[in-house]
Amino acid sequence: MRKLLIGVIILTLFNACKSTNNAKLPILGNAHEVTKMVNGKSATVTESATIPDFKFVNQYADTITRKSLDGKIYVADFFFTTCPTICPVMHRNMIKVYDEFKGDDNFRIISHTIDPKYDTVPVLKRYADKLGITGNSWWLLHGEKGDTYKIATSYLQSVQEKNPNGEYIHDGYFILVDKQKRIRGTYMGTDPKEVDKLIEDIKTLKADPEEAVAK
């Protein structure tokens, strides 16, 4: 009888562990209510926040829009190549994410430069080469300063032009976005533990049936 009880307990624990593996990631961002016509009647539905349309240029001078990320899970961050503070740490950690998923064409990393004046396309290409990134898994994006700062707010990030010391201020977060362009997680890019969590969450998200069918 006692053995049976122990067996049941072990099974219960095992199942508890298993169920957390299948956990769904939360949907972040400000959900908003929209009034829509449903079956000829007006109804109020809650829609989750999504990343709006954008247009930037990557290190190969290719135009990248919201559509370029259709059917892809991606991670976004904000940086600049001459940043002496947190960026080297962020990209040292981002290389781990890149190495883990670079073979997957349904995955991307996009890094927006917040200093487009200095970080021109050739500068970004040179940075990518020195970082050892090739192919299309990791895009370094150049765009109008206003456009970049605006898109940053969609990623729940704050970017400031310059503080009194002449330094750019930006958050060091990595933002995980699903195929429906919804934010599913934010991770401190300077913390290796959070970046390990990001890698796990990307795997969880990839396994989510809702993501498998999304185009």
């Binding site: 002496p84 947190i86 040292r92 020195k130 970082l131 050892g132």
Partner: peptide
């Protein structure tokens, strides 16, 4: 440490 790393490992061909 931000640039040169906790183990003095640098960063690829950049640092």
């Amino acid at each position: 440490q931000n640039c040169h790393g906790a183990k003095g490992e640098g960063l690829q061909a950049l640092i």
